[in-house]
Amino acid sequence: MKNALVLGALAAALVCSTAMAETSGKRIALSNNYAGNSWRQAMLTSWDTITKVAVESGLVAAADAFTTAENQATEQAAQIQNLILQGYDAIVVNAASPTALNGAIKEACDAGITVVSFDGIVTEPCAWRIAVDFQQMGVNQLDFLASKLPEGGNLLEIRGLAGVSVDEEIHAGIEKGLAAHSNFKVVGSVNGDWAQDVAQKAVAGILPSLPDDIVGVVTQGGDGYGAAQAFAAAGREIPTIIMGNREDELKWWQEQKDANGYETYSVSIAPGVSTLAFWVAQQILDGVDVPKDLVVPLVEVTQDNLEDQLAATGAGSVTNVEYTLEDAQATIAAAK
């Protein structure tokens, strides 16, 4: 009898702690600073897909997405102030700047709003951060190259947009990887701005001056296909180019794999990380104790799962994962 009572109380506690009852009246907003590339488009589409179901099933009252026209911190700060006035309970933000939005974020926190930043995170302590381990992305590239080419060799590095922290972070990871695998040497470095056409142009410009024995290209995502085009145009043998999960990159890899057994490795984060942030915000609103710093899981494409991942990646999109409530709970548990 006593046991049954305890069990009953436990069951009641469990029911109360499931999301349904607690957050059905809550409204969550997505504040997004940029929509002009395929990654951000996939991010917004994932947000729509997942939150629509959540709203229809009554889990939350609303989950609206807002994107600023210019990729400007001041504009996004104004947008967040509007969201505060509109009375949202939580704001999920992909920030234009890690520091410039802090004032607006603080105002939101002071108004009792839960703020969860992801991908482009903010430093304001009252907000949650779902950060990408960009350094790991760099380290993984060198680890793969070392396993594929144990004898080492010359590398070309394609970096992102100069002056952006993400570029510095991935580069730092690559430096770390180079220190661990000292038989590799970067003989040339260009900025590809994470765009195929810019990468193609930059690589085409430096290639004639590089030695013939380039064995690998380390990248930051969005630039691998352009690099491959530049090598092909120069009539050079195509080295092992690390890819960044973009559909055109994976498709090119698949074609090469079918034609000549080309081997490489691809890593990035899923645009669906916006849905992970959504669930984390929902969990916080639900009263769950969530650590302030969480890490986004990396999505890897390898020689073995290339076919499956490519099939699951929409034309012009990025290999995506739409996260579930359970994924979010697992991420939260991992950070504790």
Binding site: G36, N37, S38, Q41, D193, A195, Q196, D197, V198, Q200, Y225, G226, Q229, D248, G316
Partner: peptide, 16 residues
């Protein structure tokens, strides 16, 4: 021309 040259049109291709 640029989209034919670089293997497809991308949303951010004209930025620079």
């Amino acid at each position: 021309l640029l989209s034919c040259f670089s293997g497809g049109a991308a949303l951010n291709m004209g930025t620079e």
